[in-house]
Design a protein around this nucleic acid. Structure first.
Lengths: 246, 246
DNA sequence: CGATCGTTTGATCCGCATCAAGATAGGTGG
DNA sequence: CCACCTATCTTGATGCGGATCAAACGATCG
């Protein structure tokens, strides 16, 4: 089965039993969204649970005045709407748009719900995923009100580096600056300006190319006013990562 | 059993089977925190799952420079740390302090984890609770970057009204202004100043007394730049609530 | 009655948003 | 290959909202 192989690559199904995998592949299929296409829109009925196989999805809302507010950017391996398969609401509260050509595994929500107990292992992962998301959102909300725009950007660049397993010494931004700024809830102009400040903090950005020239300084700068600094994953990871790359 | 009666009052256990309730009451007990006392602190081992029976708990972090960041205020019926009983982390990342004298039902996390599957109904509620929390936090993060301080306060006063089932015509703030400001991530001074602006929007606050003089105007003001305005629960609820109270 | 806590008010400052213009680059057609 | 165009980004100038600092005010309490 083609679908079965695809399934196994996804973190969610990495160590699922053969029969479960088989069950899933029979009840799901791959859907593709061209760049700019919507996977679902605010107000649509919630019909499926989605997992991204390839590409990037922008999750966003629109304010009454038409302003777009990016809530998250999901990449391969991410579950798009875990929280929704559980909540009572039957309608999407957000929009999901493909940032680039994207493939999505879709599983009918009704099927998933009725088989939730049987798929013990998967249920556990989904739940862990939600609580992880909750934690991340809380941290980010805290960052918003604690850190300067420059610190927020520094922090984000570090996380990008980890998320995509980029070499801190030099990598290219995976999305447009406009999208990143929106994701970080700052204006494009402000974002652009922060990049200059980052030079002093050991991060050089020119065009879409980023390089950490002084990881020590950069992480210290990004984490200095963060309550999580001690156990900041970005902080610790980048250090070990850099040592390897030297 | 005394504890069993207490259990039944909690939303989480409202329609649990007799045997489950019995099981739970045998494996839990009530703990009390005097005002100012800590239920747990950042760095403590996660040992219990907590549900508040009476009082208020402030969940907060501290930035390196000693600034307190309130993450949430929990009241009777709320689960304090659902997300933690599921995540892999074994250590509290936040502090929990009693705002007033508080009673908490505590359930050993090890027991809960190993009985998670047996307590089917409860697991479902806990999971729904987390996803609800996630949703709320996302909305609030959006509010932070979209609305003015005055709008945020207006919105919060409405939600307070709903949460505590207060009469919109007139009620007293359930916590100190300092705490509310911290909860809303704005400075006390700013909070204080917003209260004057609210008069023009149909909300009069003097001392700790709040009264909505023009619910229509107040809700419109609070929701005007919110992407959820159509399905804003606060908005809709307050209207029906007011009609009743007339 | 002074003392402490919580709140208000005033004055000032700074960061980010906003508005407005350039700059750069990728793409298209002549 | 160049001229043109549009999308994306940068830079500059300005203004506003909320943070910050400082001081006064009011309540409660020993």
């Amino acid at each position: 089965m083609k679908a079965l192989n695809t399934l196994r690559v996804l973190p969610l199904f990495s160590n699922v039993t053969d029969e479960d995998a088989d069950l899933l592949s029979r009840n799901s299929h791959i859907r593709s969204c061209k760049k700019g296409e919507f996977l679902f829109m605010h107000g649509d009925e919630i019909t499926h649970f989605y997992i991204i196989c390839r590409g990037v999805m922008q999750i966003f809302r629109e304010t009454p005045d038409g302003h777009e507010i990016t809530n998250d950017l999901f990449i391969a391996g991410d579950n798009v709407n875990v929280e929704e398969i559980i909540s009572k609401q039957s309608i999407h509260t957000m929009n999901a748009k493909a940032v680039e050509d994207t493939s999505i595994l879709e599983i009918p929500i009704s099927w998933l719900k009725s088989n939730f107990n049987k798929l013990d292992h998967i249920a556990a992962i989904l739940i862990a995923d939600i609580s992880q998301r909750l934690h991340n959102v809380q941290i980010e909300a805290e960052h918003q009100s604690t850190m300067s725009a420059t610190q927020i950007v520094a922090c984000y660049l570090q996380r990008l580096c980890i998320l995509y397993n980029f070499d801190p010494k030099g990598f290219d931004l995976p999305y447009s600056k406009t999208l990143i700024a929106s994701r970080l809830r700052i204006e494009l102009e402000t974002f652009s300006r922060t990049l200059k400040n980052l030079k002093e903090q050991g991060i050089i950005v020119s065009g879409s190319h980023v390089s950490f020239t002084d990881v020590e300084k950069a992480t210290k700068f990004a984490c200095e006013s963060c309550s999580m600094s001690e156990d900041c994953t970005a902080h610790n990871y980048l250090h070990t990562r850099l040592k390897k790359s030297i």
